[in-house]
Design a protein around this nucleic acid. Structure first.
Length: 512
RNA sequence: GACCCUCUAGCUCAAUGGUAGAGCAGCGGACUUUUAAUCCGGAGGUUCUGGGUUCGAGCCCCAGGGGGGUCACCA
């Protein structure tokens, strides 16, 4: 690894610390309070007194700024909980230590400082430092202090830099964690059992998508990374559990854009003796609960749109929604060519040769979705689009399925009254198989064991899948999925660069 | 996969085809309540890579690479 002059200078400082008997990377710290605790402590104690809190504290953090003015030095340090100012006087800390700080401490270093808290002339609570030590010397300079890290590529490839320089980014991933915790709390409270099902699957299914393929050496067999956990979770209902859920990564081998990532986090939950009607109620309650966790109430802003998730959300059949927005009733046009013709006449941009169900899907995308700012359930899809959902009793050409849609673009999830008729399920698989044979790489393979499971009986069931990343994107008001995934998938850099980053630095390193 | 945009100092950004600059960071110095501290001085470059055009290319052309966007693909 080739080191720049700046890196050399910092390594030299680490050596200098070592030479004077200070380990630049010591094993332990002795923090007595977090920075935010210290600030709060001063605020409460100050009510009784005035300017100084005598009680000594030891704080830690990364040097975020450093201003020296002759025999006085101001710095800000940041720990995981906040930022506090250090006030360092040469006469209070000693000439040698003061010189060390000036010469050997840099922005980005982790340090530990002890002293007492006081309020400066300008009113900022600060630590009057009497002792200071290095906790971890940094070799690389942090990004620019005012603008932060802007380069989108570096932000994604080296997320740690993004996090350490952009507070807002740290906030987003805290929100993400709170959202997931809230989801678990909601489901646990309703007596759902959290389970784990295989990521590596001998046969994939549960969604229309291409899988990633891998190989198990000892078994000498192909395995697939799951594209969904649906079929396993429903097997658990056959087994007798009434309510199960799983939050896990799914993997789909397809393009990457602001709404799609090859690995993404999915919540699926299934409830025996429920149906898609009651599951819509549950989804409303879940989203309200999660939104309240993130925003303190049911309202928030997403990309300049005011969203309110207060139930009930409108429930509109796909057929009505398409008819109302495009004037087309697809039921009047059962022939592919015919539907394509009227769709184009209505102004849709659809390629020649698009199959019937996909034309319906395009009508949804081009006419319906742009009108759906507030959360809305689109319900009752053509059976061709949904091989795992149960037909409507009064209309076997449609299934009981819904998708919640918000903010014009976000399909939050997908849910249905689960198909538990084993013979119909087998027939649907066979249709899928025919599509596969015809070259549809996303059609599901037949899962005979799943059909066998259904033959042992699955109760009437409602099931829901919700894309967690999209939910976080919505609630954190981020325009792209990449901004709510810590380490989004990126193309590998050319080999020279990659090797450059793993080469030994032994020549340049200080002695251990 | 197609098209458009983009890549310049560690970071943020400039530079009508004519000596590659600034701010921050860093280095040397002044300054004992500053906070994007201020002031003085100096240092820092494979302009993503490789070709080409030109007296001369960061800039124009071709090819390649990374990223972003739009579309396609896709829940």
């Amino acid at each position: 690894m080739k080191l720049s002059d700046l890196q050399d200078i910092r390594l030299e400082k680490a050596r200098a610390l070592r030479d004077q008997g200070t380990n630049p990377w010591p094993n332990r710290a002795q923090r007595t309070r977090t920075n935010s605790e210290a600030l709060a402590r001063f605020e409460t104690a100050q009510a009784a007194d005035d300017q100084t809190l005598v009680e000594p504290v030891t704080l830690v953090g990364r040097i975020a700024s450093l201003r020296h003015m002759g025999k006085t030095l101001f710095a800000h340090i940041e720990d995981g909980h906040g930022r506090i100012q250090l006030y360092i006087r040469k006469d209070a800390i000693g000439d040698d230590v003061y010189a060390d700080i000036l010469k050997l401490y840099d922005l980005g270093d982790f340090i530990q400082a002890s002293g007492s808290l006081f309020r400066t002339r300008t009113g900022e609570i600060s630590l009057r430092v009497t002792q200071i030590t290095m906790l971890s010397k940094t070799i690389n300079a942090p990004p620019e202090k005012w603008h932060g890290l802007q380069d989108v590529e570096i932000r994604y490839r080296q997320r740690y830099l993004d996090l350490l320089s952009n507070e807002e980014v740290r906030r987003i991933f805290r929100v993400r964690a709170r959202i997931i915790t809230a989801i678990r709390a909601f489901l646990d409270q309703r007596d759902y059992l959290e389970v784990e099902t295989p990521t590596l699957q001998p046969l994939y299914g549960g969604a229309a998508a291409r899988p990633f393929t891998t190989h198990h050496h000892a078994l000498d067999q192909e395995l697939y990374l799951r594209i969904a956990d649906e079929l396993y979770l429903k097997r658990l209902l056959v087994g007798g559990y009434e309510r199960v859920y799983e939050i896990c990564k799914d993997f789909r081998n397809e393009g990457i854009d602001r709404n799609h990532s090859p690995e993404f986090t999915m919540l699926e939950f299934y409830e025996a003796y429920a149906d898609y009607e009651s599951m819509m109620d549950t989804v409303e309650a879940l989203i309200v609960s999660v939104t309240t966790t993130a925003h303190g109430g049911p309202r928030f802003t997403f990309q300049d749109q005011e969203i309110d998730v207060t139930p009930p959300w409108p429930r509109k059949t796909l057929r009505d929604a398409i008819r109302d927005t495009s004037g087309i009733d697809y039921a009047d046009h059962p022939e592919q060519a015919d539907l394509l013709r009227v769709a184009r006449e209505a102004g849709a941009d659809i390629e020649e040769g698009t199959v019937w169900p996909r034309i319906v899907d395009e009508l949804l995308k081009q006419f319906v979705r742009p009108t759906l700012v507030q959360p809305t359930f689109l319900i009752d899809y053509p059976v061709e689009l949904s091989p795992l959902a149960k037909r409507k009793t009064d209309d076997p050409t449609h299934v009981e399925r819904f998708q919640p849609i918000v903010g014009r673009v976000i399909e939050l999830g997908n849910a249905f009254t689960e198909l538990n008729d084993p013979l119909d399920q087998l027939a649907r698989f066979q249709v899928q198989q025919k599509d596969r044979d015809a070259g549809d790489v996303e059609a599901m393979p037949i899962d005979l064991d799943y059909v066998t499971a259904l033959m042992y009986g699955m109760p009437p069931t409602g099931g829901v899948g919700i894309g967690i990343d999209r939910l976080v994107m919505l609630l954190a008001d981020q325009p792209t999925l990449r901004d709510v995934i810590l380490f989004p998938a990126m193309r590998r850099l050319p080999i020279e660069n990659a090797q450059n980053s793993v080469e030994s630095t032994s020549e340049e390193s200080p002695e251990p």
